[in-house]
Design a protein around this nucleic acid. Sequence first.
RNA 1: GGCCGCGUGCCCGAGUGGACUAAGGGGGCGGAUUGCAAAUCCGCUAGCGUAAGCUGACGUCGGUUCGAAUCCGACCGCGGCCUCCA
Length: 524
Amino acid sequence: MNIRFYNTLTHKVEPFTSIEPGTVSMYNCGPTVYDYAHIGNFRTFVFADVLRRFLELAGYKVHQVMNITDVGHMTDDQLADGGGEDKMAAAAKRLKESKKQGVALIENPDDPYAVAEFFTKAFIEDAKLLGLKIADEYPGQMPRATDHVVPSMIPMIRSLIEKDHAYVAEDGAVYFSVQSFPEYGKLSGNSLDKLRGGAGGRIQDSHQTHKRHPADFLLWKPDASHLMKWDSPWGEGYPGWHIECSAMAKALLGRDTIDIHTGGEDNIFPHHECEIAQTCGTTGNDRFANFWLHSRFLLVEGEKMSKSKGNFHTVRDVLEGRVTGRPVDPAVLRFELLKGHYRSNINFTAKGLADSAKAVRRLQDSYAAALMIPLASGIDRKRFLNEAKQIGAESSVTTDFLGYLGDDLNVSGALGTVFTWLKTRPQLDSETLGIFHCFDRVLGLKWGEATKGSHTIADSMHLEVGKVVRVSLNSDAYKQCEQLDAARAEKDFAKADAIREQLIDAGYDVKTTKEGTVASKRLA
RNA sequence: GGCCGCGUGCCCGAGUGGACUAAGGGGGCGGAUUGCAAAUCCGCUAGCGUAAGCUGACGUCGGUUCGAAUCCGACCGCGGCCUCCA
């Protein structure tokens, strides 16, 4: 199929082809683990996940790597070139605060490795809830930077020095020399003479004096006082902020040039620019990644997300109901984060979340109905599912869906085909089930699993099954549904309404169908 | 100061030169159904008109074109970057 992506490197939409036919190597800039991940982080991670899933549905084998940044690094915005407070130290401080308040999240907050481990675990939990496939490949495909300092980063730094792309300055630190790499600036559209040093207000003059060029960036900082430190030919210290991705991409993907590299828009400069310089400086190739894809930022209720504005939400805040006052199903948050185009800012709103909940409910109910076919008709379930997958993948509906995704990952357009198709009231057969299956392979809303713990019926699309199907997986709610039906049959409406209220209070959406009452877990 | 992305109807969000008479979702309104709801289904949801139809409308103003939401220019607005940040 034809696939096109907007490539930040070339500033245009280009046809996508992989280096090796049939496989795609992809590196995603991953989380820092000094705190819980927020919804803006996950906007970018969900984007990367949808990209991977799309490529898989399109027939590629995808080698995906997402790093976990667990090296301390400085935290003070004004003191970026060394100095300032260590991020791990800041995280430790926060953990101690919570310990004082009686919540001991971790045994020893002064152990940076323990802090990193704690937030890594939290991240993987969040990632699994939100359906990131890469989380199932942890730790294999999700390397931790601390594991790669000695085997991958130090050799790469040494190689850059040998090839005169890096130098040891008077202060003992190792810097990459941007002037040794003429392509520096190509990705972001910057040029060395136009870059206004310090315009971002984050660098300190005293650290600039040892560099040959103001834009030279740190590869190794000797610093015995740093919380996390390693032995190196340049003294005990820690690696620069950009080297980990270059080193781990090479180590885990096993190639000098990869197909796709992704990240948030803030990574374009300097992070990805520096990665290109480092990798190409080592390999001598002119490309690190053939395609650079960047997602735009998420806004909250139309404004930038910031702690001072009080609109800074972690994934947990949203899921546990601290944002909207009600728990939110992870599938709803995922839908909210993926429904817009990755190259537009998305606006996270309470209303949008409610919209998404409605959409997810419709999809889940419809899919659940299709899943009931073998149950309703007594067909062998496994055989039926396999057959359905095959037929679904060949359907023109699936082709349309893929067509939109192939056009620079147009998820909104693809969702349009989903709902347009649903409107046609598809027959409840193996093709329909197969189409749903294909949709969800990309959307990742776990429709099948979501139906667990709720009741559902096979005719929610008003299709011909000829048999009542009501599944009971949560016995309490199911019993209440039966009691409600009995009360209605006896025309004891007061009792029926009371039971309905109970179910609603317990967090269920209650609907009445010809076949009886159905309660399903409220999504948001 | 420089570089980059975006701006669509009540809201979200596709569309990127002619079939746009702007997909799809949400909300709203009317109807079917219901003990009542919810869900579901049908219709409507810029203005005028009984209607056929006419006129608007894609940040603003210009331009290119037989034809522009779509291309070009300027401007306005939003977002990102100019050494930690998705």
